[in-house]
Design a protein around this nucleic acid. Sequence first.
DNA 1: TCAAATTACGGTCGACGTAAGGATC
DNA 2: GATCCTTACGTCGACCGTAATTTGA
Lengths: 86, 86
Amino acid sequence: MDIRQIEYFLSIVETGSFSAAADEHYISQSSLSKKIIALEKELGVPLFDRSKRKVFLTDAGEVFLEHARKIHLAHKAMIFDVAGSK
Amino acid sequence: MDIRQIEYFLSIVETGSFSAAADEHYISQSSLSKKIIALEKELGVPLFDRSKRKVFLTDAGEVFLEHARKIHLAHKAMIFDVAGSK
DNA sequence: TCAAATTACGGTCGACGTAAGGATC
DNA sequence: GATCCTTACGTCGACCGTAATTTGA
């Protein structure tokens, strides 16, 4: 699992859209989709329900979201502190 | 940054050795070394002092270590909770 | 039909392991 | 000389974007 995948996931949740999240990260819709599919495969559970026009989180997606936010913040703090220790 | 790199880093700290950590993760010493070098490059700071036979953490490495432990635990909790939500 | 996500495809870049090199003890 | 980390090198898999396909409104 890559930190970027977590950031992609968070962007999708914020925007409610794969394509909008892809734009935010300057990658193609296709690449983003594949990254999320790979993440779901790694976890063994689907994170999103794509059956509607707007994407919704599955139950597992909700659980993932809570942790994803924590890890994202922890990672940001890590970068900041490490850079400051130079 | 990949979660695996964090786990590699933690194994090196625990064992005090790149090669022992590589064995733990069933990858070659060479691959592990390259992963850590890539991590240091991404962070912009060296994490280890390799000038002695046993590897030592730099100041930045010590800072990274604190965060790495937190993120590792958060990741483990994430995997556990997501799997449990299936 | 329009918009949005997935799948197919081809090219390129990166990751891996083996083996050689350099350094420490 | 032995052990450990890094560099060189060749191969193979992964990632990316474009384009085609599928599906929901």
